[in-house]
Design a protein around this nucleic acid. Structure first.
Lengths: 190, 190
DNA sequence: TAAAAATACTCCATAGGTATTTTAT
DNA sequence: ATAAAATACCTATGGAGTATTTTTA
């Protein structure tokens, strides 16, 4: 049972006539006849009663015709959604990453990221945490990744990005702390 | 995209390895490879990234794998429901039908009934309305069909069947009225 | 270098076609 | 007698197989 079969059921249900349906689908009447027989075999039931005036849907046939509408809609949704996901995220992601993270965590992170967004390229700048903050502030990178400690307690990996609402100061004196210079996007504890 | 294709996606998502999936499905690795390529062509997107460690699902692939579960469940439901509908109503329906109905309405009624319950055969006994009531009373027919009038006003076709709670009288003197001898099953006004 | 996927072929089942026959009104 | 469906038979595509090559960690 593929999409075409469901479509056949739908159109047949509209015409209640194999010959007309075949014309509608631009295939021959015998081909369609055979295909309907195949579908009936797959479900192991009779979909239509054949007569000289066309076909009459059995109760099971009626049910399947209703299901056909549902399936066709769902299949179209799935195709469109899946395809649109592909159009999605691509480009180059500029990262500022602290030395510690670069060494110990970045490879695994990039691998995971690659799996979810294979079309995204990376541009990685490394440095000390303070330098990463400046990269964020100067918008030289999209995302900063540092190992965060708050009150001396390790918070794991912290993702930073600049707050769009933050008014830029003329010159960074870089005595800044995370909470005012950037915003935490996400955090991975491990 | 047929049921097998969805199943392939599901199993592949579990194994994340074409070779293992092929074994699991008892088909060869090249066959499965080709089929996955076909599926990707049908959706016009990449489902998995191939590597030497197996495959990695793309976001679209992940989405389709989730859909695969849904579709497989739904397809199974549909098949079972449709098939069970077929097991339904069959046998012989014994009808007692008044002369008027037999002449003017029965052919159309039987045609409609046939469409919904093609496996049911009919046994029709005809007679005057009074005789139909007796057929019902004596359980010689399952259903009586008469043209009903109440207070001289035409009620259209009336379907009768015996009330199971009704205690049978020894001999019907047949001065009976509908409401005590049988029960009205349904009514068609026209 | 080894495991996994892809490719190159061969084979067969099935969707499609044309011509014709059967069926039921 | 006629319209509709079924059948017979042919072709081509796609699914499945075996043998082999390519790829990448």
């Amino acid at each position: 049972m593929n999409e075409r079969d469901w479509h056949i059921l739908k159109v047949l249900h509209e015409h209640k006539n194999i010959t007309k349906t075949a014309q509608s689908l631009y295939i021959s009447q015998p081909s369609l006849t055979k295909r309907i027989q195949q579908i009936e075999k797959e479900f192991n039931l009779k979909i239509v009663e054949r007569g000289t005036r066309g076909v009459q849907f059995t109760p099971q046939g009626e049910y399947l015709a209703i299901c056909a509408d549902e399936m066709l809609i769902r299949l179209r949704q799935i195709k469109e959604t899946a395809f649109n996901m592909g159009q999605e995220i691509s480009g180059t992601l500029r990262l500022g990453v602290s030395n510690y993270i670069t060494l110990h965590k970045l490879p695994g992170l990039l691998k995971l990221f690659r799996e979810r967004f294979p079309k995204v390229d990376f541009h990685v700048t490394t440095g000390w945490s303070k330098e990463v903050l400046n990269l964020i502030y100067n918008e030289e990178v999209h995302v900063g990744i540092v190992r965060g400690t708050i009150n001396g307690q390790d918070q794991g990996i912290i993702f930073l990005r600049k707050r769009f609402v933050l008014l830029p100061r003329k010159k960074s004196k870089s005595k800044t702390c995370l909470s005012c210079r950037g915003s935490i996007m996400g955090q991975m504890l491990f």
